[in-house]
Simulated assay, not measured.
Amino acid sequence: MHKIAVLGAGFMGAGIAQVAAQGGYNVIIRDIQKSLVEDGINTIKQELDYLIEKEQLTQSEKEKVLARIKGTTDLAELSDADIVIEAVVENIAIKKQLFAELDNICPEHTILATNTSTLSITEIASVTKRIDKVIGMHFFYPVPRIKLVELIKGLETSDETIKIAQSFVRDINKEHVLLKRESPGFIVNRILIPYLNEAIFVYGDGIAEKEDIDSALKAGAGMPKGPLEISDMMGLDTLYSITMVLYNEFKDTKYRPHPLFSSMVRAGYYGEKTGKGFYEYD
Results as ranks from 00 to 15, higher is better:
44 I>D: 01
62 K>Y: 03
52 I>T: 09
50 Y>P: 04
44 I>G: 02
50 Y>E: 10
50 Y>C: 08
57 L>W: 02
30 R>A: 13
52 I>Y: 07
61 E>I: 04
29 I>D: 02
31 D>L: 13
53 E>P: 06
51 L>R: 08
68 R>Y: 02
48 L>V: 03
64 K>M: 04
27 V>C: 08
62 K>T: 04
39 D>F: 13
66 L>M: 09
61 E>F: 00
54 K>E: 14
25 Y>F: 15
59 Q>G: 13
46 Q>R: 14
65 V>T: 06
47 E>Y: 02
63 E>P: 05
28 I>A: 05
37 V>S: 08
44 I>Y: 02
63 E>S: 12
66 L>N: 02
29 I>W: 01
52 I>W: 09
68 R>L: 06
26 N>G: 08
51 L>F: 07
25 Y>I: 09
44 I>Q: 01
26 N>C: 10
69 I>L: 03
50 Y>A: 10
48 L>K: 01
59 Q>R: 10
65 V>K: 01
64 K>W: 00
62 K>A: 05
30 R>I: 14
41 I>T: 08
31 D>G: 09
30 R>D: 05
27 V>K: 00
28 I>K: 03
34 K>I: 15
31 D>E: 13
42 N>I: 12
42 N>V: 10
53 E>F: 09
58 T>V: 01
45 K>F: 11
37 V>H: 05
57 L>H: 04
59 Q>P: 08
69 I>M: 05
62 K>M: 06
64 K>Q: 04
58 T>L: 00
62 K>I: 02
68 R>T: 02
60 S>F: 05
53 E>N: 12
32 I>P: 07
63 E>T: 09
52 I>G: 09
28 I>P: 01
38 E>P: 09
30 R>C: 15
41 I>P: 05
36 L>S: 14
57 L>M: 09
34 K>H: 11
42 N>P: 12
46 Q>Y: 11
58 T>F: 01
60 S>D: 11
47 E>C: 06
50 Y>R: 11
46 Q>L: 14
55 E>K: 14
56 Q>W: 07
37 V>M: 10
48 L>N: 00
27 V>R: 00
65 V>F: 02
34 K>T: 15
61 E>C: 03
35 S>Q: 14
31 D>R: 04
28 I>S: 04
29 I>Q: 03
67 A>D: 08
36 L>N: 12
59 Q>N: 13
68 R>E: 04
46 Q>C: 13
63 E>D: 13
48 L>Q: 03
55 E>S: 14
46 Q>I: 13
33 Q>V: 15
33 Q>R: 13
36 L>D: 12
65 V>H: 01
69 I>H: 00
39 D>N: 15
45 K>N: 13
26 N>K: 08
48 L>R: 00
56 Q>M: 11
48 L>T: 03
39 D>Y: 11
64 K>P: 00
42 N>R: 12
30 R>M: 14
68 R>S: 03
26 N>M: 09
63 E>L: 12
35 S>F: 05
41 I>A: 11
59 Q>K: 10
34 K>F: 11
46 Q>G: 15
43 T>P: 05
64 K>V: 03
47 E>S: 11
54 K>L: 10
45 K>I: 15
38 E>W: 07
60 S>N: 12
51 L>Y: 10
27 V>F: 03
56 Q>A: 10
25 Y>A: 11
59 Q>S: 14
38 E>K: 12
51 L>G: 06
28 I>D: 01
44 I>A: 03
28 I>F: 04
38 E>A: 15
39 D>E: 15
52 I>M: 07
